[in-house]
């Protein structure tokens, strides 16, 4: 199942990896250019005194879009070419197959987002105190969690057969993702991060509702 998903999504994954890492690189270049032009002390002062997501601001919606894009690439063909019907006829547990498909996507996003974080950390670590680069990594964390949530909720919508239910799901998805973007104040989400992780984990089960309805032939 993992191999099948890999064949289906490899080029899209490569593109997602290039785009997300490209944006991270762009932010890092901005940061290095600012240090070169104004000096490290100026950047430190700005980061200490301003409560803004400096140097990660442009990343805000990138993980979310990456999650939606991966879900589209992975699940649109299943619905469009009716592959899901064939998959569900395989002599395997349907639940296990769904978890394997979603697990592949989540692992792929984890690798991609992990690489983003690694680049950010390596780029900022040499010239910033842990308190300052920690502040930037922390502000981006809900955005990356939104990436995982967007992937799972998009899968839930795409796998749904009925259009009216898809619209309902879309509204739920929009409101759920709004929770990840309520504040860009660095560190504001710290008391809420665990709840967001639990929410993302709970979302793994939602596509099962769509698959179950699909099996029943609801379109």
């Amino acid at each position: 199942m993992f191999y099948k998903e890999w064949i289906k999504t490899r080029w899209a994954l490569l593109l997602i990896l290039i785009v997300t890492c490209g944006y991270v690189g762009y932010e890092l270049l901005n940061y290095l250019r600012a240090i070169g032009a104004m000096g490290g002390a100026h950047i430190w002062i700005a980061m200490i005194t301003k409560d803004e997501p400096m140097f990660v601001r442009h990343l805000q919606y990138i993980p979310m879009m990456a999650g939606i894009a991966l879900a589209c690439v992975q699940f649109f063909p299943e619905m469009y070419h009716k592959c899901l019907k064939l998959t569900l006829h395989l002599p395997c547990s349907h639940l296990r197959m769904m978890f394997e498909m979603l697990g592949f996507g989540l692992v792929a996003l984890l690798v991609c987002f992990g690489l983003n974080y690694l680049i950010l950390w390596l780029g900022m670590r040499p010239s910033l105190a842990p308190e300052l680069y920690g502040k930037m990594l922390l502000v981006a964390l809900p955005w990356y969690l939104a990436g995982f949530a967007a992937y799972l909720l998009s899968a839930w919508i795409i796998l749904e057969g009925s259009w009216s239910r898809r619209i309902f799901n879309l509204v739920v998805m929009f409101l759920c993702l709004k929770v990840f973007y309520l504040s860009s104040f660095p560190g504001a989400y710290v008391p809420f991060l665990l709840c967001l992780v639990v929410f993302v984990l709970a979302c793994i089960l939602l596509p099962w509702i769509s698959i179950d309805r699909f099996k029943k032939g609801i379109e």
Binding site: L95, V172, L175, L205, L206, W208, I209, D212
Partner: peptide
């Protein structure tokens, strides 16, 4: 599993309603 998934969806929708309305 379907029941659990529906319960989770129900909780999410209920929370969204008491937040947004």
């Amino acid at each position: 599993m379907r029941k659990l998934a529906n319960i989770i969806l129900g909780i999410i929708v209920a929370l969204l309603v008491v937040w947004e309305l």
